[in-house]
Nucleic acid binder design. Structure first.
Lengths: 255, 255
DNA sequence: GCGGTTCTTGTCGACAGGACCGTAACCGTC
DNA sequence: GACGGTTACGGTCCTGTCGACAAGAACCGC
């Protein structure tokens, strides 16, 4: 049906019916830690479709930029963060009808920021918000398009990345306490880790963390001030903390 | 510049200059084991650009199908394999100029087959071939487009999948010896595994493998016949074999 | 039968990691 | 300033995992 509507960008000699045009977008799932819980940055849609609903920030890829550059640009436009922050591609989505307007294939990116609260406060508070992840995963909050699935996949990806890369350090500041770092693992994996054993794994030989000599101020509840560390080079090659095998894997054999 | 060449597929009210059209393709990296080595199925291009060079099989996504369906269709068209084989999306590629004809974003899929030799023999031998992976990774063979990077990423993905999923069983037949299964790990990870320890991990409680009572015929060199197993249910939840920590990670600390 | 090859079973020991206790250093209130 | 509450830190015990290695079992060709 569309054989006569060939876009001018397509070179002559190709039948556009063989190359159905798609719009390509990049969606960036921005994760951050806040009050010990994992949060995702969402924006409220101002236009149809899904007007007024929350959505993952994103935008169209330009022909002159790579996918990574598009993700970096969208992150910068949404948050003002210009640093080459941790930005990981985790999936592509192209189900027919996922955008009622046209054929859209989107590429999902995962970004990890620290202390994004100030950034959100700087933008229009009604348009952008940090949403606790649990509110999304338990179905309390609905998202536009297939963005709920995209967020789910991003979370699953960060759970794996946490085990095989140094992504954990991206959630904390330049200097951090081991309790802060441990809270990252606990929030993302949804488990509790023994503080003493965590320390032994991290502070063991291997250049994971480097003590700065400084100490953190205790919280309002008191407690001994924790030592401040900064990330070592070993994170570039992997992570020191591993999830224990899922006990539910062992099911009794049926003879 | 292109504001006047809006495709008819795009609804009125949208400026096509805001939605630059892309072609979306799906490329399937088909891996298989042959003679104890990892091979990838490539096809020889019959048209420009890159005419005559080897490339990963793939094709255009249709607006009416999902990305997964497109990958499944391409796999079926190239190999005749219709089974819902293991098919994993691993990345999207959209660098400008990666296809000199137009703007193309491709989504990479990883397929694992067993005994693909007969399939390749059935097609035009000059158009499809199983290439040992080492010939690609050492730069002996050049690939069209950015397909070398795509293959590299597919390999990296299968290395991770091998550790966290049951993808290893997709490389072997319905029944297999533990030596065959071990060869999969050794070929993909490029390491040697102790046969005795491998057996202990696999044959331990947990329904990894189920003995069939049958035995394999020894090779020409002789040797005790190996018992034949079939895959158990535990593979659905992960893999039993894990790579040991990279010893090169431990570098001496510089005071 | 005999050496060679491969598969299978068994043993030993190092090490990682979970559980747990005691101590140190801060907070608040009394 | 003593005291309980809270958090951080260091150490011990112990078990399960896993690598290294040895020995036996079952086949081959000669």
């Amino acid at each position: 049906m569309a054989t006569t509507t060939r876009p001018a960008d397509f070179p002559a000699g190709y039948d556009s019916s063989q190359f159905p045009p798609f719009a390509v977008t990049v969606d960036v799932v921005i994760l951050t830690m806040s009050q010990g819980r994992l949060h995702v940055l969402l924006i409220r849609r101002g236009e149809a479709p899904y007007k007024g609903m929350w959505a993952v920030p994103g935008g169209f890829k330009r022909p002159t930029e790579t996918l990574d550059e598009a993700a970096k640009r969208e992150l910068s436009e949404e948050t003002g963060v210009d640093a080459a922050s941790l930005l990981t591609q985790f999936g592509a989505y192209g189900d027919p009808g996922r955008d009622p307007r046209m054929n859209v294939v989107t590429v999902g990116y995962l970004a990890v920021l620290r202390d994004v609260g100030a950034i959100v406060a700087g933008t229009d508070a009604a348009a952008a918000s940090l949403v606790p992840l649990v509110d999304l995963l338990d179905g309390t909050l609905n998202l536009a398009f297939d963005h709920l699935q995209i967020v789910r996949d991003a979370i699953e990806r960060v759970r794996v990345e946490l085990e095989v890369t140094g992504i954990a350090t991206a959630f904390v500041g330049a200097t951090f306490t081991l309790a802060e770092l441990r809270a990252v693992y606990e929030a993302i994996w949804g488990i509790e880790l023994d503080a003493a054993n965590f320390r032994r794994s991290i502070a063991a030989d291997g250049d994971w963390v480097i003590p700065t000599g400084l100490r953190s101020r205790p919280g309002p509840a008191g407690g001994r001030p924790a030592e401040l560390y900064r990330a070592g080079r070993a994170w570039l090659a992997g992570g020191p903390i591993h999830r224990q095998q899922d006990a539910s894997r062992e099911e009794p054999a049926k003879p």
